[in-house]
Simulated assay, not measured.
Amino acid sequence: MVTVTGLSLFPNSTITELLLVDDWGVVLVNGTFWNMAASAESYLVDIAEIPKEQFFVLLRGQDGTGAVFQRLSPTMISSSSLKITAQDQEVVRSGEEFNVTFTLRLDGPPSTYNLTVRDDHKFTHGIRNSRVTVGGNVTVDGMAHFFVPNGTRPGTSITITIEALSPDTGDFNYEMMQLTVMEQVVDLISPNCTITHLVKPCPFHPGTNCSAETWQLGALLSDLGTGIVRVYSRLGNGTLETREVEMNMTAANYSASCCFPEVELIAVDGAGNVGKCSVGVGLPSPPQTSPTPQTSPSPQTSPKPRRLPPSRRLPPSRRLPPSRRLPPFRRLPPFRRLPAPRILPDSAPSPASSEPRKTSGADSS
């Protein structure tokens, strides 16, 4: 946004160009004006890319008489390669500590930065890392600590500034954020959400597009503590209308296409407690044609095993008649004992000694 002080004093004045030029007047970037002015002296300008070189802002236009004028910024501006992004945080409470987290990202070679954090009420208690090295498209996280003393007036605005300076390259950048101190209230009860009516004419007809059908929802949201401060919808893509019917009670009407059959109505009270209603009317589905019944063959039961007849008992063995019986064994006579052998006297020569005995010459003496 560009503001030209005093432009409203000259009726029918127009701004025609906004240029970023270097110290020689060479145009670096040509800005594009939006069709609508933000106010009588402010214009919205789109800058496609901030140049890396130092530059001035040059503004040209015509006054009501058709005379051309131009304005040049008194200081030269330089872009930073470091980007600082702080988390979104809107309110804090007196008597509480809180932290602010932020990230640093550098497009370029690594460089070391010194970090400082300050605020306009001296609530800062320190920073986790006061010296970091950033580079190579790697994000570095940081955290600053604060404490809001008891008795701080509700509605007090706190402006926090996070600064980063590289002693090596001289690159500098900063991030600012504002917080508001709220009254210390103990409210632990979430808002209540009650569905009052639900109209869901979303039947599926052959050849009907789901976007041609809509459904509607009515709900009543209430809170017994700090009161509802915000109501919004999630998941769906419909239209939400709210109105306050009485103190701490809000009526909500929601309508959407049948292509978006689900929604969550979220209610937030002043203490940050959240209540919700979840509703789904079901996705339309094409009609299911009942399949023609097919007679499945009955399961073939295996035949029961046939019981065999009891085994026929064989007839008892026939006994042979007595006439065909074998005769009994014949008993043999006992052995006859032989007489004892006779013993011959010693003088009688034995049959083996009747032959003359042969002697060797070694036996003769």
Rank of each mutant, 00 (worst) to 15 (best):
V229W: 01
R306A: 11
L265F: 04
D168M: 01
R153C: 00
G151E: 09
I266P: 02
R336A: 05
A252S: 10
I160Q: 00
T152Q: 11
R153P: 00
S353E: 06
G95P: 02
A251R: 09
H121W: 07
S257D: 06
G126E: 01
S302P: 02
D269N: 10
T161R: 13
A67Q: 12
S365E: 08
Y113K: 09
Q184W: 03
V140C: 11
L82M: 13
E244V: 06
L44T: 12
T16P: 08
D119C: 12
I162C: 03
G218D: 01
E244Y: 00
C277R: 03
D120R: 13
E262K: 15
G142E: 01
R324P: 02
R306Q: 15
P206N: 10
L265C: 04
P293T: 04
T5V: 14
V29I: 10
E97V: 00
S190A: 15
A38P: 03
T101R: 14
V148H: 04
Q62E: 08
A48L: 08
A362G: 12
T101Q: 09
S255D: 09
S298P: 07
M176A: 07
R243F: 07
R357L: 10
T292N: 12
T169G: 07
P310V: 08
A348R: 05
S290E: 13
V245D: 08
T16M: 09
A212V: 11
S350F: 07
T169D: 04
P310I: 10
L314D: 00
G272R: 03
G66F: 06
A40W: 01
P203C: 03
A251S: 11
E97R: 08
A144H: 06
S290L: 15
T169F: 03
R337E: 05
P74A: 13
N99Q: 14
G31E: 09
P328W: 03
N35I: 05
G66L: 05
P191Q: 08
R153E: 15
